[in-house]
């Protein structure tokens, strides 16, 4: 925290809450006050809090859909190319383009493509891996993966005013409000 003061530019203000319900209520209040650059942290997923934050995002789903389509198409056309064009052999009198027997591999490749792109999208959209982050330096932030719930208003939010923002956070029933060094 001391370094933050030296720079005069903290990363943001962090409020700690004891329960998911107070966190969700706090998010609603903070958002209603017009703050946009807000993030919340919890040890397990909180769907209400995510919706209150306006975090609704279909990115990973879209990526998985696209990856599945590409994977399936690649799987099918590899088989078509190999069996019907490049290396046509008569197997039990079946046509070279014997599509029903291409279905299993097409399906497997669809699943593989969807899973891989979905996970890559998850990491990319969440900007992970990110081994270092200013929040990790906040003394009590390690409780965000244990049993506490945090709300952070980032300094880069246009409405951020040291005293005023702190007073808002303190009015929301937190356990503690602290400054996070940049």
């Amino acid at each position: 925290m001391q370094e933050g003061k030296v720079n005069g530019m903290p990363y943001g203000l962090l409020a700690e809450f004891a329960s998911p319900e107070t966190l969700t209520a706090a998010i609603r209040r903070v958002r209603a006050s017009g703050y946009k650059e807000v993030d919340a942290f919890s040890p397990f997923p909180l769907e209400d809090a995510a919706l209150a934050l306006g975090a609704e995002d279909w990115g990973v789903a879209m990526a998985a859909l696209l990856g599945g389509i590409c994977g399936g198409a690649a799987g099918y056309f590899t088989q078509y190319f190999a069996m019907a064009l490049d290396y046509p052999i008569n197997s039990g009198g079946r046509p070279h383009h014997s599509w029903p027997s291409f279905i299993p591999i097409t399906f497997e490749m669809t699943v593989l493509g969807a899973v891989l792109t979905g996970l890559i999208a998850l990491l990319a959209l969440n900007r992970l891996p990110m081994p270092h982050h200013p929040l990790f330096a906040a003394p009590r932030f390690s409780l965000a993966s244990q049993d506490r719930f945090f709300l952070c208003i980032l300094r880069r939010d246009p409405l951020f005013r040291e005293g005023e923002t702190r007073r808002l956070l303190e009015s929301l029933g937190p356990v503690e409000v602290s400054e996070v060094a940049a």
Binding site: D39, A50, D57, G118, N126, L128, L135
Partner: peptide, 19 residues
């Protein structure tokens, strides 16, 4: 991977987990 438990991250995480 530097997981911070951000509610935004959790939201995408839940979605891809279900998918």
């Amino acid at each position: 991977l530097g997981w911070r438990g951000s509610v935004r991250h959790w939201h995408r995480y839940q979605r891809i987990y279900l998918i």
